[in-house]
């Protein structure tokens, strides 16, 4: 269960949280993921970047079965996932996800968004669920907005609600699918700050993002993808500052 890569995570962890083994996916004839293999250790912050259409969103959405894949195995904490009930249970108990478009439930208040899973799935009492959700909302700095509806919040606030909604289910791994891409520039920072705070708590995180500054600051490893393949994996100073491949250099020139 050791990480197979030579470029080891900076944190001293031995457990593999997610092991992706030769993942292949086609949309019709279009080969979207080509033999993608990757190990993510527990507590590691992994940033996935690459040009649009490179399959990074598809990859992260394959991890919690929002997308089907035709070949390959994803294992979570040593458990290979399939399409059965047991695997779904593992996914929901270990992984939370934050989307590009927030996907908050517009007919529920901020607080109800966060307590929904607790009261209906965990069978937690309403009072305990409220308490826990308020703690999380306080942590992301929007406890005072608990009674508002998502439509009354700014994009940055909505994304922070979405993060606390995921955290309420106490996941071990957080998946971020371009969490700041739909935000106005002045709101990007408030969401990134929350993510940086989260990273400091030792949460395992997989982030698809274009925020290179964030990657340099907190990522343990950066994955660069293009055309459905992983081109480079390594610590940020290696991939982002000193890229080995032309594709990476070209991309970084566009982004930075």
């Amino acid at each position: 269960m050791m990480t197979s890569s030579g470029h080891l995570a900076t944190k001293n962890t031995t457990n593999t949280a997610i092991k992706i083994d030769k993942l292949n996916k086609w949309y019709g004839d279009h080969h979207v993921l080509k033999d993608v293999s990757l190990d993510i250790s527990e507590g590691e912050i992994m940033v996935v970047c690459g040009p649009s259409g490179s399959g990074k969103s598809t990859l992260i959405r394959s991890l919690n079965h929002l997308e089907d894949y035709q070949e390959g195995v994803v294992s979570v904490f040593g458990q290979p996932l399939s399409r059965d009930r047991q695997s779904h249970k593992i996914i929901h108990q270990t992984m939370g996800m934050v989307f590009q478009n927030f996907n908050l439930f517009p007919h529920l208040t901020v607080l109800q968004n966060c307590t929904l899973g607790l009261t209906w799935l965990r069978k937690m009492s309403e009072r305990d669920a409220d308490k826990m959700a308020m703690r999380l909302l306080d942590r992301v700095g929007i406890a005072q907005l608990a009674t508002r509806y998502p439509g009354q919040l700014s994009g940055g606030q909505q994304q922070r609600v979405a993060i606390s909604r995921s955290l309420a289910m106490e996941p071990k791994i957080m998946l971020f699918d371009e969490p700041t891409s739909a935000l106005d520039p002045e709101m990007v920072k408030e969401v990134l700050d929350v993510m940086i705070d989260l990273a400091k708590t030792g949460m395992t995180m997989v982030c698809v993002t274009h925020e290179m500054q964030f990657a340099k600051q907190v990522a343990d490893r950066v994955v660069f993808m293009a055309d459905g393949e992983i081109i480079e994996v390594g610590p940020p100073e290696q991939v982002l500052v000193n890229p080995q491949w032309d594709r990476t250099k070209e991309f970084l020139q566009h982004v930075l």
């Binding site: 108990q93 992984m95 929904l116």
Partner: peptide, 20 residues
């Protein structure tokens, strides 16, 4: 996205339909 958000929270078909 609403279905996906419900699915990532772990809500099943009946919960997703009835609550979301």
């Amino acid at each position: 996205g609403q279905y996906e958000a419900a699915a990532t929270l772990g809500l099943g078909y009946l919960h997703t339909m009835a609550l979301i």
